[in-house]
Design a protein around this nucleic acid. Structure first.
Length: 688
RNA sequence: GCCGCCCUAGCUCAGUGGUAGAGCACACCCUUGGUAAGGGUGAGGUCGUGGGUUCAAAUCCCAUGGGCGGCUCCA
């Protein structure tokens, strides 16, 4: 019985059993048959030479054509993503073959394609180092030059497992067992060339039809990884690479990476003098320099305005607290590994010493929690809870909303630290809301409103939202199912109100309640969680919090933890990259710079400067011996939004010659007009 | 914490065993200028730190601190 194939345009073809996507392409045209490297069959990405499963929809994935410069042209992003996915998965195979040629004792584990490239996890005693990359690339080139076909063959599970057992690669055996457990009807192998003759690898596919399609493959880096992601399990070397259809495409990619590097908040932070992380102060501890402090201060003021409007009360709490506080909250000693060790009081330490306590015993008592002392706070909630508990509350008082830009300290692993996005001391834009069950939904929504306002003001539309729900398959959560339902519904409704993509992620809730997380990407594509809104039934119970209801009985409040931007460090780190260091006027450390064309006009320039200062604009004057061009160059590099070039003509007319950092020369305008416009732009927090 | 790479002037970097270099920034002098760098002179470094090998170490080896990219973790 023939197959009916439906194409993307809705037209249909009839083909005999055994037809492939290639057959379909050939029926349309010879050129398309040559260009087809894979297909979406019923939506799944598959080999172009895989027999079609029956009546189906087929959308061909083609190799791209190139422009004169050799850069690939794509129909759309989906086409590009599909074609590159096929190519990179194939590149991972060819790289594995190359590495096995060079290092025969390599055991392969797992080699997927990524959105920007691919990697292969492999077990090998010899460390692969950057000096090996070129050799590996050369081998890849040879295999690509041979233009061998990717040949797929499959065995049913029993035969397949027998074959794998004989090969004795426990990682591949494990991969196969997992596939079978998931219901795979067969195990497939891909040979680069002919079955049983050329190199082959257990693999689900799909692949491009020939190694010759690998126009440019580059080995990028090597890192360590672990089997099943388990630190205690076997260690792999993970070799990262990327692949493109043409060398020109690779060059574009590498160029983009270079540009991203220049946009990195660590680079900009240094060049603009925003912050410093000093070895002598300590890893992961940020020093906010005067210019960075301006950005942070302006942002905090902006957020504070909205907190006040929304009925928050600002509080201040100390940076340390007694260990008992954290025993009650559950942070100590349970999370001792991610905290700075306790601060032990002199008397207590002396007493232990007098009793003959050894260092080992002291260490043990710190980790088992029997030590007495204080701790740098890892979270602000316990302090805020004690503020709430210090008064007797009526249901009429609720919701109580306590906000603090609260600084916390966490012991992050050294290998994880970097720039401002992962630090050991940071200030959260934190708040804790104590609410009745009836108030929960509205209060969660209120938290989201602030996120909306701030992201909109900053022009940050490119973020995603995760709603973490309880694990449905287990009792990995505390509390009543009905409470969870109410809280989860509140979180989902709040996320829906944002008009951005959000995902529901069962099992990703905290054990004490569901949460909403806000995630953004940095310039090199890494995702960072910024803010979070979490519903918590647990801490009010641990601290035995209560309020008196209208029934004159005691009730337990629900807590909402919320830090919509996470921490000032991480948020501003991301903000620096978002703006590429060119902050909008209201956030710019220096808003206007006056550039007298020579020191003959310093007097007039000073008049201009004073007029700016009168309106509270952050400004300076460049009195260096540079010429105007030089002064502009420096101001542009400092990303100062407005440069006011002033000379004789301006002094005579009472004007300033305005240059904007992105628009360039805007011509002369009366001083008062410029000041008024700048004040408006600043006060309305325009994006500029 | 683990794997790989890196650390030379304030910054960005060159320097493969034989007397420490450049550009920018900085200081001073000349230049007094109209929209992305005018010219000159000068100061600035125990080459991350500690050991070792060597007649001789920025350079080779070991340890250690810090950075980068991943892995793992992120209450």
């Amino acid at each position: 019985m023939p197959l009916t194939v439906t194409l993307p345009d809705g037209s249909t073809q009839s083909h005999p059993q055994g037809a492939t996507a290639h057959t379909v392409a050939a029926a349309i045209g010879e050129g398309l048959a040559k260009a087809a490297i894979g297909a979406r069959v019923n939506g799944d990405l598959v080999d172009v030479n895989l027999p079609l499963p029956g009546d189906c929809t087929v959308a061909l994935v083609t190799a791209p054509r190139q422009n004169k410069k050799g850069i690939s042209k794509w129909r759309d992003e989906a086409h590009e993503a599909d074609a590159l996915m096929l190519l990179r998965h194939s590149a991972a195979h060819v790289m594995a073959e190359a590495i096995e040629r060079l290092f025969p004792d390599t055991l392969l584990a797992y080699g997927p394609a990524l959105s920007t490239g691919f990697y292969y996890d492999l077990s090998l005693d010899t460390p692969i180092s950057t000096t090996d990359f070129e050799r590996i690339e050369d081998e890849i080139q040879k295999i690509a030059a041979e233009d061998r076909p990717f040949t797929r063959y499959a065995l049913e599970p029993v035969a397949g497992m027998a074959r794998l057992m004989a090969e004795d690669n426990k990682y591949k055996i494990d991969n196969a067992q997992k596939a079978i457990a998931k219901g795979a009807a067969e195990l497939s192998w891909y040979a680069t060339g002919e079955q049983d003759k050329n190199w082959e690898d257990l693999c689900q596919g799909p692949h491009v039809p020939r190694t010759g399609l690998l126009g440019a493959v580059k080995v990028m880096s090597v890192a360590s990884s672990h089997w099943h992601g388990d630190v205690t399990s076997d260690r792999f070397q993970r070799v990262y690479g990327t692949a493109f259809f043409t060398p020109a495409d690779l060059d574009v990619h590498l160029e983009n990476l270079e540009q991203a590097k220049a946009r990195d908040h660590r680079v900009i932070g240094r060049s603009l003098g925003l912050f410093e992380i000093d070895e002598m102060v300590g890893q992961g501890l940020v020093l906010w320099k005067p210019k960075g402090a301006v950005v942070r201060d302006q942002l905090q003021k902006f957020i504070s305005e909205h907190l006040e409007r929304q009925g928050y009360s600002q509080v201040f709490t100390p940076h340390i607290g007694k260990l008992d506080l954290y025993r009650t909250s559950g942070h100590f000693p349970y999370y001792a590994d991610s905290q700075y060790p306790p601060l032990v009081e002199r008397d207590h330490l002396k007493k232990l010493s007098d009793e003959g306590c050894s260092c080992a015993e002291l260490t043990a008592s710190m980790s088992d929690g029997t030590i007495e002392g204080y701790m740098l706070k890892p979270m602000n909630c316990p302090h805020h809870i004690r503020i709430f508990a210090s008064d007797k509350h009526s249901y009429r008082d609720l919701p109580v909303r306590l906000a603090e830009f609260g600084t916390v300290y966490r012991w992050e692993q050294s290998g994880e630290l970097g720039g401002m996005t992962r630090v050991r001391g940071f200030t959260q834009d934190d708040a804790h809301l104590f609410v009745t069950p009836e108030q929960l939904a509205a209060e969660v929504l209120g938290c989201i409103e602030l996120v909306k306002i701030v992201f909109k003001t900053l022009g940050m539309n490119d973020y995603r939202v995760r709603v973490g729900l309880r694990d449905p398959d287990s009792s990995k959560f505390v509390g009543e199912a009905s409470d969870w339902d109410a809280a989860e519904n509140a979180c989902i409704a709040a996320a829906e109100s944002l008009d951005v993509p959000f995902s529901k992620e069962p099992g990703e809730a905290a054990f004490y309640g569901p949460k909403i997380d806000f995630v953004v990407k940095d310039v090199i594509g890494r995702e960072w969680q910024l803010g979070t809104v979490q519903v918590d039934y647990q801490l009010p119970q641990r601290f035995d919090l209560s309020y008196t209801g209208s029934d004159n009985a005691e009730h337990r409040p629900i807590m909402i933890h919320r830090a919509p931007f996470g921490s000032m460090e991480r948020f501003i780190g991301c903000l620096i990259e978002h703006f590429n260091g060119s902050f909008p006027l209201w956030l710019s450390p220096e808003q206007v710079r006056v550039l007298p064309i020579s020191d003959k006009f310093n007097d007039y320039a000073t008049t201009v400067l004073d007029a700016l200062k009168d309106q509270g604009l952050r400004c300076s004057m460049d009195t260096s011996s540079n010429r105007v061009n030089g002064k502009i160059k420096v101001a542009q590099e400092d990303k100062v939004p407005y440069m006011l070039v002033v000379g004789g003509k301006d002094a005579d007319a009472g004007t300033v010659s305005v240059r904007h950092r992105t628009d360039g020369d805007r011509g002369a305008v009366p001083l008062a007009d410029f000041v008024a416009a700048a004040v408006k732009e600043r006060d309305e927090r325009e994006l500029g």
